[in-house]
Simulated scan of single mutants.
Amino acid sequence: MPNIYFQFKQFRINQDQCAMKVCTDSCVFGAYVQARQAKQILDIGAGTGLLALMVAQRSEAVVEAVEINPGAQVQAAQNFAESPWPERLKLHPMPLQDFAKSCTQQYDVVMSNPPFFLASLKSDDAAKNTAKHTGDLLFEDILAFAQKHLAPEGRLYLLLPPAEANHFADIAKAHALYLAETLEVYTRTGGKCIRHVQAYTFEPTRQAVTKTLNIRKEDGKTYTADFIALLRDYYLIF
């Protein structure tokens, strides 16, 4: 049974009311997003509030988050309130489509770990389906929002499995957003690529930069130096 909370160096993530718990790839994503110079950040699909809290820790930005699931809304609000930065964290308990109707803000960073299973069979857990499947939050909704509300020099960050990441890159061009950078995340050295962290901008690029991150060494147990460096400010064990 997953722990009801996950303790980081500067904040705690309570997660007993959320379908999707803290996981390694989400932590990689939150640590990788370039947020230090940002003034306004939006997290689409906040879940527990993990990503918003991670970027709040290493920036002075106002960090807003949108979340549709009632349980996750309660959880994220609690985690924001109990963090060291409650005055800079704001939760919008509504679908992105509703938030977009009244939003007038421009964001330096928009980030999302969106529902990504386009064709997989759904489970009997409705909350987990909402968190993992694209039925309530389509890629086009994210792109339409970013096209309107991402600052001219801003960046849109996504965390997706490789196949879905490639699909997103293809449809992003129709919204004048172009893949600038990809971090390929592998379970271990020589192992499987499980996620792509993608960065999009309004500036077309001839060739997107591709980087790699191995979470563990070949033995499948020992964390790599790159992973430790990325998560050092967050994980208690480092």
Rank of each mutant, 00 (worst) to 15 (best):
Q75F: 07
P70Y: 09
I68A: 15
K148I: 14
L150V: 15
T222Y: 03
E140N: 11
K148E: 15
A131P: 04
Y178M: 02
A65H: 04
Q34W: 00
L50V: 08
V185C: 02
F116H: 10
D125R: 04
T205N: 03
M111G: 03
L96Y: 00
Y235N: 06
D125I: 14
L42F: 08
A163M: 13
P70E: 10
A199K: 01
Q57I: 02
Q10E: 09
T130D: 11
K132S: 15
R58Y: 14
V110T: 04
C193Y: 04
F139G: 03
Q78L: 15
A76Q: 12
L89K: 01
Q40M: 12
P204G: 05
K221W: 13
R216C: 05
Y186L: 09
A174E: 10
F168P: 02
R232T: 11
Y223W: 13
V22N: 05
I171R: 09
P86W: 10
D141V: 13
L160D: 09
P204S: 05
Q105D: 08
K192F: 10
V33S: 06
Q198A: 04
Q17C: 09
G45N: 03
V66I: 10
T210W: 02
Q10D: 04
N214Q: 14
L91T: 00
L160R: 07
L231V: 12
L137C: 06
Q10M: 08
L138S: 15
Q78F: 15
D141M: 12
V63I: 08
C27K: 02
N129W: 08
A176P: 01
V110Q: 04
E60A: 07
R195K: 09
A126Y: 11
D136W: 05
K101R: 10
V63P: 00
R36A: 14
M111I: 07
I13H: 01
Q75V: 06
D170C: 12
R155Q: 14
F238Q: 09
T210P: 07
I194S: 14
S123C: 11
Q15K: 07
